[in-house]
Structures are given as structure tokens and as C-alpha cells.
Computed example of a mutant assay.
Amino acid sequence: MLKTSVKKTFLTPIAALALMGISNQAIADIYIGAGAYQSETEGVPTNDDDEVSAFFLGYNFIDTNIFMFSVEGGYYDLGSFSGEAYGSNYKSEAEAYTVAGVAYLPVGPFLEVYAKAGVAFVEGETVINGDKHSDDGEEAFGGIGMSIDILDTLDIYAEYLVFDNEIESEIAGVGVRLAF
């Protein structure tokens, strides 16, 4: 499913994060997260949404009371859509492996707002009347979100992301983030 170059490109930041985990302080700055999202796309003729998932791993480079910055690698299912339109049967599905920078701004003792931007390595396929079309490529993506700090190590977040791929995917969802 994944092309070798995409695997290497995606796994390089993850390997770098793993190597940084040698000291206790570096381990304390690593986080993982997962969420449930609603996916919507503009590139296929449908009004359906799809429920999808996402997983990510990140590292906090800057963590102060006024600003935080991290880098994360993630996987986002962008959805699967099918149906009939304009006399054609179609099916479209896509997923993305991402590398992003995330800038956080605390707005209270338990609330943070953030912006996320980076590169998405998208793998997609659209089939119209049996003709397959690949939607693979490297595209920009970004979004905004907010998180509530439940404990020092557990956050609940909500975010909205836009992927600038051929089928113009948008996802919105909620999830949990666990810091070590």
C-alpha cells in the first residue's frame, strides 16, 4: 500500500524522535494521541460524511507558560466514499501520513488553542466506472484546534484539518493526547 519513499520520508522523523528519547527529559516531552473524526470531501459528488480515525506521535521542543511548539508525525484516514452521480459509479478513498509543526498558545490554566501545519503524504484512489485513478502525492495540510488539560499528562482535544489533496479532504474530530 505505501510506496517505499513515503515510508522512508514518514519514518525518518519518527526515528529521530525515538533517538531523542535517551534522556529522561526528552522522554517527558514525547506525546501520543488518537482521535475519531468526521471526514468530508469536495472532490467526489456526494454529501455523505465518513467516520474515520487518526493517530500521531509528537515531541515538544518548547514548553513554556506562554508558548509551546512541537513536531509530530501522524496517520489520518481521510475517508471512503462511493455512489452514483452523473450516470457514473464512483468510489474514492484516501489516507495521509503527515509531518507537522504545532504551535500552542495557553489561554488559561487548563485550555490551549493551537495551529497545525505541515506536509501530508496522501495515498488515494478514485474509481469511476471501473477506471482507476491514483490520487497519491505530497500536499500541504493545516488546521486549528483546542485542548483541555485534564491532568499534566492527559489532554482532550478538538481540531479541524484541511488537506490540500486532489479530492480536497476536510476532517473534524475529537481525541485524547497522552504525554510521557
Rank of each mutant, 00 (worst) to 15 (best):
F56P: 00
A26W: 05
G175A: 10
A179H: 15
M68E: 12
A16W: 10
M1E: 06
N60Q: 05
I30W: 09
N165P: 11
F163G: 02
G79P: 05
H133V: 11
Y75W: 12
E125W: 08
F110R: 14
Y37E: 06
M20F: 15
A96L: 03
A36E: 10
D152Y: 11
K7Q: 05
E170S: 15
T9A: 15
A18D: 07
I27E: 09
K3Q: 13
G137W: 03
T46Q: 11
Y160L: 07
D48V: 09
N47K: 13
D77L: 06
M20I: 10
A16V: 10
F163A: 05
I30G: 04
L151W: 10
H133G: 02
G58C: 01
Y59V: 03
Y114W: 05
A120D: 08
E84K: 13
G74N: 04
T12I: 12
G130S: 14
M146K: 01
V102T: 14
V174M: 15
K8V: 12
K3V: 00
G79Y: 09
A34V: 03
F61Y: 14
I150T: 03
I66E: 12
D131I: 14
M146C: 09
A103N: 06
E84C: 06
A172E: 06
Y86T: 04
M20C: 13
E40S: 15
F163E: 01
I32Q: 01
E170W: 03
I30E: 03
I167R: 05
T4S: 14
V162N: 07
D152N: 15
V127Y: 07
L111N: 10
H133Y: 10
Y104Q: 08
V122H: 03
T126N: 11
T126I: 02
A18Y: 10
A34K: 00
A36T: 09
K8Y: 07
S23V: 04
N129Q: 08
I167H: 00
A85I: 11
P106R: 09
F69Y: 01
E123D: 13
S70K: 08
A54V: 05
A179G: 14
D131L: 13
E112I: 02
L161A: 03
E42S: 15
F61A: 07
A100M: 07
G33K: 07
L57P: 01
T46M: 09
V113S: 00
M20E: 06
D63Q: 10
F180H: 08
F55Y: 10
V113Q: 03
E84F: 08
A158V: 15
